[in-house]
Design a protein around this nucleic acid. Structure first.
Lengths: 135, 135
DNA sequence: TAGCATAATGACAACCGGTTTCACTATCGT
DNA sequence: ACGATAGTGAAACCGGTTGTCATTATGCTA
């Protein structure tokens, strides 16, 4: 991830994103990074996220209240995350748990897009617990 | 699916949706249903789709060029579809191919939301072939 | 059948996440 | 120092979706 030009903004965004430790929306990232770089615009946050996605540092992980959320991940090989749809907490799954699904899809004449399944919607224990209480 | 009031519109939408045999956006549904019910408004199409979703007749299957797409399915039990992200073609997967993933998620402390994984993004053979040619 | 209560409708406006535009600025190579 | 160019941000814009509200269709009751 070469900083290239405009080091300040990129670094602020990167720092903010890394310190999240969970899935976040571009707006959240922008807000967090603004502490370190007050003049940072939302447009740049969107553009930077797009760039990270292209370069493989980030991947989309569904949406939360209408906004797309992303996870940062340096793992290069084939892998899948689970992402809590409530709080954005993430975990990396061991091995490829989607191989059976991929096989099943193939027999139906479809190629499963693992790329689009990098993160699977789930609910973490904490949020599941909170849910039960409110019910 | 009780027709209730306003039989005409509902029936036109239902007929249109059923004859699609693939994933479709609300706009597409509205356009198709307009043949049979010319005065049908887009708002009603959105409201009807929302209703079907609540009642379990339809489920969201991702987005295509910015629009949310849905699939109709009468299967009641636990099941998963694959949906071609290009043309919307669908297939029903045999058994629960996501059980290993669910197990893997559980060991990480997450409950996989099977409900949100009713349709898995894929590419059908026809679209995969067309893709190769254009490349 | 007439009349009423209310679910349903549709034209239109508002909303909202996201993208594009464009004049301006920071950075790099020379 | 200076020209070339990548990067920036405020604001306009876009398209899908949702809300508003006056009107209409339907079922129920008398």
């Amino acid at each position: 991830m070469e900083p290239g030009r405009n080091r300040k903004n990129r670094m602020a965004l990167l720092e903010a994103g890394r310190s999240m430790n969970r899935a976040f929306s571009v707006r959240e990232l922008h807000t967090a990074a603004r502490d370190a770089a007050p003049r940072l615009g939302l447009t740049t946050a969107y553009r930077t996220m797009e760039r990270w996605r292209e370069e493989g540092w980030a991947e989309e992980a569904g949406t939360r209240s209408g906004e797309a959320v992303y996870v940062l991940c340096a793992a290069q090989g084939h892998h899948h995350h689970v992402v809590c749809v409530d709080c954005g907490a993430t975990a990396l799954l061991e091995g490829c748990a989607l191989e059976p699904a991929r096989e099943s899809a193939r027999t139906a004449g479809f190629d499963l897009l693992d790329a689009a399944l990098g993160s699977l919607p789930a609910r973490c224990q904490a949020c599941a617990g909170a849910d039960e209480q409110s019910a």
